[in-house]
C-alpha cells in the first residue's frame, strides 16, 4: 500500500473518531499541517464522505490553532456544498462553534435553536452553562438532557467525567455503567469504571478514621469493584496497558498490608491471595508491553 493511502486511512480514522480534540498542542499543530498538505495535494484519494469528514476535522484544528480565515473558508465551502444550513444539524453546529470561538456567544446560541428533537444541537446547548464555571449547573443541564434522551451514550460519558471532576465518583461510575449496558465490550469504559472506583476508594480511605472491620470491608468491596472492572477490560483487550497498571496499583497498594489483620475472614484472605497473583502477572505484562512499545518505536 502506498504511503498516501496509509496517510489517507489515518486521517479519515482520526477525523471520524473525533480524537483530535484531545490531542496535545504539539500534535494539534502537526495534524493541522499534515491535513492541510494532504487536502492540497491528495484530496482526490478521498471519496465525498471521507472528504467532508476530513474537512470537519481541519475546521476544528484551524479554530484551535487560531487559523480563523481558514476555518471560515472551510465553513463557507461546506455551506456552499450542502445548501441551506437550516436543514443540517452538522453545519449549524459548526457555525455555532465558529461564532462561539469568535466571541459571539449569543449568536452561537441563536444558531443552535431550541428544538429538543435536534439531538446534536441540544447536546451543544447544554455546554452553555459550562462558561460560568458552575459545574453543578452544567451537571444539572446534562441530567435534564438525559431525561429527554436517555440512550445518548456520548452524553452519559460526558456526565460521568463531570461527576468525576467534582469528586462524585459513585455517580460517575453509575453514568459510565449506563454506557456499558449498551456497549458491553467497551473496554476503555470498563477501565474508566475501574479508575473511578479506585479514586473513590482513595477518597474514602483518606477519610477513614477507624480501622473497624465493617468499614474496612466496605473499602475492600470498592477496591474489588475497581479490580474486577480493570480485569474485564484486559479480558477484552489484553494489551490495554492502562488497565494493567490499574491492576498493579491495586495489587501492590499498602492497604493490602492493613487487610492482613483481617486474614481470618475467608473473603479477605481470598482477595489478598488473588492480589498477590495479580501483582506478579500485571508486573510481567507491563514489562512485556513496554518492551513491545519500544521495539515498535525503534522500527
Amino acid at each position: 500500500m502506498s504511503s498516501v493511502s496509509a496517510l489517507k486511512n489515518k486521517l479519515v480514522l482520526v477525523a471520524r473518531s473525533g480524537t483530535y480534540v484531545n490531542f496535545a498542542p504539539s500534535q494539534v499543530q502537526k495534524y493541522h499541517h499534515e491535513t492541510e498538505r494532504f487536502l492540497m495535494n491528495s484530496s482526490d484519494e478521498l471519496d465525498a464522505v471521507e472528504l467532508f469528514d476530513v474537512y470537519e476535522m481541519q475546521f476544528h484544528l484551524a479554530l484551535i490553532t487560531s487559523h480563523d480565515v481558514e476555518a471560515k473558508a472551510i465553513l463557507d465551502r461546506l455551506v456552499d456544498q450542502f445548501g441551506s444550513s437550516e436543514n443540517s444539524q452538522r453545519i449549524r453546529l459548526l457555525q455555532s462553534k465558529y461564532l462561539e470561538v469568535m466571541g459571539e456567544p449569543e449568536q452561537a446560541l441563536k444558531v443552535l435553536g431550541n428544538d429538543p428533537d435536534e439531538l446534536r444541537l441540544s447536546r451543544r446547548l447544554t455546554t452553555n452553562s459550562r462558561k460560568s464555571g458552575n459545574a453543578e449547573e452544567y451537571i444539572a443541564n446534562l441530567n435534564f438532557y438525559l431525561d429527554l434522551q436517555p440512550s445518548d451514550l456520548i452524553t452519559w460519558a460526558e456526565l460521568g467525567d463531570e461527576y468525576a471532576k467534582v469528586g462524585h465518583y459513585d455517580k460517575a461510575v453509575f453514568s459510565l455503567q449506563e454506557i456499558l449496558l449498551q456497549e458491553p465490550f467497551a473496554y476503555p469504559v470498563f477501565y474508566k469504571v475501574g479508575l473511578y472506583n479506585y479514586y473513590r476508594f482513595l477518597q474514602e480511605e483518606q477519610a477513614l478514621k477507624t480501622e473497624r472491620k465493617d468499614k474496612l470491608w466496605e473499602l475492600v468491596e470498592i477496591l474489588q469493584d475497581a479490580r474486577n472492572n480493570y480485569l474485564r477490560s484486559v479480558e477484552i483487550c489484553d494489551v490495554y496497558i492502562k488497565s494493567w497498571i490499574g491492576i498493579y496499583l491495586i495489587s501492590s497498594h499498602k492497604f493490602n498490608d492493613k487487610l492482613r489483620k483481617l486474614n481470618s475472614v475467608k473473603e479477605v484472605a481470598k482477595f489478598l491471595e488473588q492480589n498477590d497473583k495479580l501483582k506478579t502477572l500485571s508486573e510481567k505484562k507491563i514489562r512485556e508491553l513496554d518492551q513491545e512499545a519500544w521495539a515498535q518505536i525503534k522500527q
Partner: peptide, 18 residues
C-alpha cells in the same frame, strides 16, 4: 472503536483548547 466516548466532539470547549 470506542474513542468517541473519550473525544465527545459535540461537547468540546474550543475556547479553552484554543
Amino acid at each position: 472503536d470506542y474513542a468517541e466516548f473519550e473525544s465527545r466532539v459535540d461537547f468540546v470547549d474550543l475556547v479553552e483548547k484554543r
